[in-house]
Structures are given as structure tokens and as C-alpha cells.
Computed example of a mutant assay.
Amino acid sequence: MKQFIDFIPLLLFFIVFKLEPRELELLGLHWTLGGIFSATAVLIASSLLVYGALFVAQRRLEKSQWLTLAGCLVFGSLTLAFHSETFLKWKAPVVNWLFALAFLGSQFIGKQPLIQRMMGHALSLPEPVWRKLNMAWVLFFIVAGAANLFVAFTFHDIWVDFKVFGSLGMTVLFLIGQGFYIARHIQTPPETPSQGA
């Protein structure tokens, strides 16, 4: 459910981006709906609403949600202020690389790698497996950032499609691979002898 909630602003961004630009009048003001700049405004507004509602409901946001929100606000605001989509094209690579840096840093700082802190309550894995999984996430975020950057500045016509669906597809494939890897190494707690009759 959390992943779907995080996806709402991106989905709204995609829908508004794909609309043919048209002029609307609302409250005596003229607005353009459709295209990159109105989609960016919708991305910022919907991110504030979604993460604001989550913060009110949960009394907190996860660090990844704070980072995503900050990236959206900074790069989205720069896109609107300078009327240049270049800033927004840098959002996904920079956010992915910051996640990679956080996962990499956790290999050396703290008692557990970041992936173990996130999933350790649900899984029991040997310590070397946690470290390999964590490094796999580092590599995934580096590759995802590079792929987003390459597509954004090479294939101008499809970069938004890739940002929404290509990144999602890469993540799903990576999670499936991770699932197979975890299944080979998962440790089951030893059974306690049942009380005899």
C-alpha cells in the first residue's frame, strides 16, 4: 500500500503531462493544463498533499519519503522558476544516487546495513547475505540513476514515459531477482519441541 501511495504524485504528473495543453480560467486566473510545466506544478502540489496527509496520519515520514519530497520540491521549483525542464530531468538521477550513497554509507556506519534495518524485522538472513543485498541496492540505484539520466537527455520524446514506467519496471525486475536470492538464503527459526501428550 505504501508503494502505491508514493506512486500517486508521479502518476498524476504523467497524466497531466500527456494532456494537450489548454487554457483554463479558475478564480479569475488563467491556467495552462497539460505539458511539462503544469505537470510539474501538479507533481509538487500532489506530493505536498500526499506526504502531508501521511505525516498527519502517521506523525512521521520515512527518510526515503523525506528525500523524495525534498527532491520533488527542489527540482520541481527550479523547473518552474527557470521555465526549464532540465532541472526536473536531473531529479530522478540525483535522488537515486543519494539513495545509493545512503545504502553504501550504511555498509560502514552503524551496526547493520540499511537493507537489514528496513527488512530485518521480517526476515532472518546471514550477515554476509544482508551485506550483499545492501550492495545490490547500491548498484541498482546507481544504474537506475544513470538510466534515467541517459534517457532524459538522449530520448527527449519518451523520458517521462521511462521515468514513470521504465523505472517502475526496473524496480519490479530487481525486486523479483532479490526475492529469488533471499529465498535461497532465508533462515527459518529452529522449531521448539512440542509438549507431548
Rank of each mutant, 00 (worst) to 15 (best):
G76K: 00
G76C: 01
T79D: 00
T79R: 00
A81Y: 06
A81P: 04
A81L: 04
F82S: 04
H83I: 02
S84M: 02
T86A: 04
T86E: 05
F87T: 00
F87C: 00
K89W: 01
W90Y: 02
A92K: 00
A92V: 01
A92Y: 01
P93V: 00
V94K: 01
V94I: 05
V95Y: 00
L98A: 01
L101W: 08
L101C: 05
L101R: 02
L101Y: 05
A102C: 05
A102Y: 03
A102T: 05
F103Q: 00
F103I: 04
L104H: 07
S106P: 03
S106H: 07
Q107K: 10
Q107I: 07
G110S: 03
G110L: 03
K111C: 10
K111W: 14
K111H: 10
P113Y: 03
Q116N: 10
Q116S: 11
Q116F: 08
Q116P: 06
M118C: 09
H121K: 15
A122M: 13
A122W: 15
L123P: 09
S124I: 13
S124E: 15
S124Q: 12
S124L: 10
L125H: 06
W130N: 06
W130C: 06
K132P: 14
L133T: 08
L133M: 14
L133K: 12
L133I: 15
N134P: 08
N134D: 09
N134F: 08
M135Y: 15
M135H: 07
M135F: 12
M135V: 14
A136V: 10
A136N: 14
A136S: 15
A136K: 07
W137I: 12
V138K: 05
V138R: 03
L139H: 10
I142T: 11
V143L: 13
V143D: 10
V143K: 13
V143W: 12
V143Y: 11
G145T: 12
N148G: 11
L149Q: 09
L149M: 10
F150I: 14
A152S: 13
F153N: 09
T154R: 14
H156F: 14
H156Y: 11
D157K: 12
D157Q: 14
W159M: 07
W159Y: 13
D161S: 08
D161A: 13
D161I: 14
F162G: 08
F162Y: 15
K163I: 03
K163V: 03
K163S: 09
V164T: 14
V164S: 09
F165P: 04
G166D: 11
G169N: 12
T171K: 11
T171L: 10
T171C: 11
T171D: 06
T171Q: 09
V172M: 08
L173G: 15
L173T: 11
F174D: 07
L175A: 07
Q178Y: 11
Q178E: 06
Q178H: 06
G179E: 08
G179V: 07
Y181S: 03
Y181L: 06
Y181P: 03
Y181G: 03
I182W: 01
I182N: 02
R184T: 04
R184A: 04
R184L: 05
H185F: 02
T188Y: 04
T188I: 04
P189Y: 08
P189W: 11
